[in-house]
Structure formats: structure tokens, C-alpha cells
Computed example of a mutant assay.
Amino acid sequence: MSMLTPQGMKGKQFRITGTSYPRLGPPPRRRRRVLMAIGSVLALALIALGGVQLVDIFTGRSKHGSAQACATTASGKPMVRPAAATGAPAPAASGAAGGGSPAAGSPAAGSAAASAGAGTPLPATTAIPQPQAVTVNVLNSTDKAGLAARTADELKKRGFTVGKVGNAPSALSKKVPNSAQLIAGSTGAAAATLLGSEVSGATTMADARTDGSVDFVIGDAYTDLLDPNAAAAALAQALKPSPSASPLSGTC
């Protein structure tokens, strides 16, 4: 028996039929060859694209094109730019203990009521006066008795010149939900900014008065003036200029 004869086949005869015959080598791997060809093409494409980008970077072609486009735009139609803010309200800082207007029936009371309805913001300012140069009218729009007098005494200790002290006019009574509302004319915008740093959560409004006085109307959320150190920090933050956005890379 030959060594190639399987066990148990001794003495048996077999006949090969059909046209098939066993292969002595592995079948051709066409799929692998196709995948290798596709991978080679993709690799060459990526290498070519990277080479083009490197040429643009080292030759500065892209920057030159952007600069040329910007120059064309500047020499042609004017570029659109954001409008500058000219009437931004004075920063309320983290303070201002209440604003107000004179007692009901006085001319200042009428202007305070008008400003509360109009809602005109005060212009921004950076020239802050000394507290002694600021006349503040302390008015209480809440139902807490004696709040205006106590606040006026504290402002006087901090150097402010106190004017009228009393209840807010009916147009503002129980209508100031935040800590305080500061009402002033365009002349008193800087004084309102200074007072705004004395209390947290105050708002500022403009009216038609021509002097530099400020109405400090105490609102429902008012508790007390800020600590002097905190007030100084709030004033510095209020005077800090807003950072301007830098242009994006690749833009004019």
C-alpha cells in the first residue's frame, strides 16, 4: 500500500471522473490586488494635495490673495462695519443703592416719573466726579419706613452731598423691583455711574433735567449699600472698557 493511500482504502479501486482536478498552488488573489491598487491611488492623491498646500504656505500665495481681495474691496464699495455704540447706558456696576426722585409734587418728581416711563438710557462716561460734587436725592419707593433716611446718612458718610430725602412719587411708588433706580440727566451721567457702584443691582435712567443731581430711588430688592472696598471694585469694573473683537484670520 502506498503511503498516499488513506487508511481503510486498501484493496479498493477508485476512478477519477469529471474535468475538475486539484490545484497545487493558491488561487489568484484578485481582490487583494484591486484593494492594493485603490490604496496606492489614494495615497498618491493625498501626497499631491499635501504638496500643493505646502507650496501655498511657503510661497505666501494664500495671504497674497486675501490681501489683494481686501484691497479690491477697500478700493471699490465701502466695507460694512458694526456701528459704534454711542448711547450705551452707564454701567450699573455691581452697586447703587437706590435712586429716586424728589418728593411728590415737586418738578424733580415729575421728571423722575417721566424718566421711569420713557426708559431712556444714560450716555456712557469715564470722567467720574468726587462724591462731594454729587448731589443725590434719596427716595424710598418701598413700604419700609425710614429706609431713605438711613441710606442718606450712609451716603453722607461716604462724602456725597444729600439733597431731598423722602418717599418716591406715586409714579415710582412700589414700582422699582430691583435694588435701586438711578435717575439723572445727561449732565449727571458720571454721577449716576459713581452712585451705581455703591449698590448691587441698580439700574440707570435718563430724564430731561439739566443739572448734575441724581435721584436715588430705593427699590424692593434693596438691603444695604456695598462695602466701601466692594464699591471701589465695582466702580473700577464699570469704568473698564469693553474688549474689542479681533478680526478673524483670513478676513479683511
Results as ranks from 00 to 15, higher is better:
residue 21 Y to T: 14
residue 201 G to C: 05
residue 195 L to T: 03
residue 135 T to E: 08
residue 197 S to C: 08
residue 148 A to I: 03
residue 93 A to F: 00
residue 140 N to E: 08
residue 153 D to L: 13
residue 242 S to A: 13
residue 165 V to L: 04
residue 102 P to Q: 14
residue 235 L to Y: 01
residue 189 A to Q: 02
residue 71 A to N: 12
residue 17 T to C: 13
residue 116 A to Y: 08
residue 61 R to H: 14
residue 162 V to Y: 05
residue 39 G to Q: 06
residue 224 D to P: 08
residue 190 A to G: 11
residue 110 G to Y: 07
residue 213 S to Q: 10
residue 58 F to G: 12
residue 170 S to G: 11
residue 112 A to S: 15
residue 23 R to H: 06
residue 191 A to H: 00
residue 107 P to K: 09
residue 48 A to K: 03
residue 209 R to G: 11
residue 190 A to V: 06
residue 120 T to Y: 01
residue 53 Q to I: 15
residue 67 A to N: 12
residue 114 A to N: 11
residue 129 P to W: 02
residue 125 T to S: 08
residue 157 K to I: 02
residue 85 A to V: 15
residue 132 Q to Y: 06
residue 68 Q to L: 14
residue 108 A to M: 13
residue 240 K to S: 11
residue 13 Q to L: 13
residue 147 L to Y: 00
residue 91 P to G: 01
residue 32 R to P: 04
residue 39 G to M: 10
residue 63 K to S: 13
residue 185 G to F: 03
residue 236 A to Y: 02
residue 201 G to S: 08
residue 180 A to W: 00
residue 151 T to G: 03
residue 31 R to K: 11
residue 4 L to T: 11
residue 245 A to D: 10
residue 107 P to C: 11
residue 24 L to T: 08
residue 40 S to C: 09
residue 249 S to T: 14
residue 60 G to A: 10
residue 238 A to P: 01
residue 186 S to L: 05
residue 225 L to W: 02
residue 104 A to G: 14
residue 16 I to W: 15
residue 49 L to D: 10
residue 11 G to T: 05
residue 160 F to C: 05
residue 190 A to I: 06
residue 145 A to D: 05
residue 251 T to L: 15
residue 248 L to G: 14
residue 142 T to C: 05
residue 237 Q to H: 05
residue 117 G to I: 11
residue 91 P to Y: 00
residue 170 S to N: 09
residue 206 A to Q: 15
residue 216 F to V: 05
residue 160 F to E: 04
residue 234 A to H: 03
residue 184 A to K: 01
residue 225 L to A: 07
residue 215 D to I: 04
residue 240 K to T: 12
residue 165 V to N: 00
residue 236 A to R: 11
residue 216 F to G: 03
residue 155 L to D: 02
residue 234 A to Y: 00
residue 247 P to W: 03
residue 244 S to A: 14
residue 66 S to M: 14
residue 44 L to T: 09
residue 147 L to K: 02
residue 174 K to I: 05
residue 111 S to T: 07
residue 149 A to D: 10
residue 2 S to K: 09
residue 225 L to T: 05
residue 207 D to H: 14
residue 85 A to H: 13
residue 227 D to Y: 07
residue 138 V to W: 03
residue 75 S to I: 03
residue 175 K to L: 15
residue 194 L to P: 00
residue 54 L to C: 10
residue 62 S to R: 13
residue 153 D to R: 13
residue 229 N to E: 15
residue 14 F to Y: 15
residue 139 L to G: 15
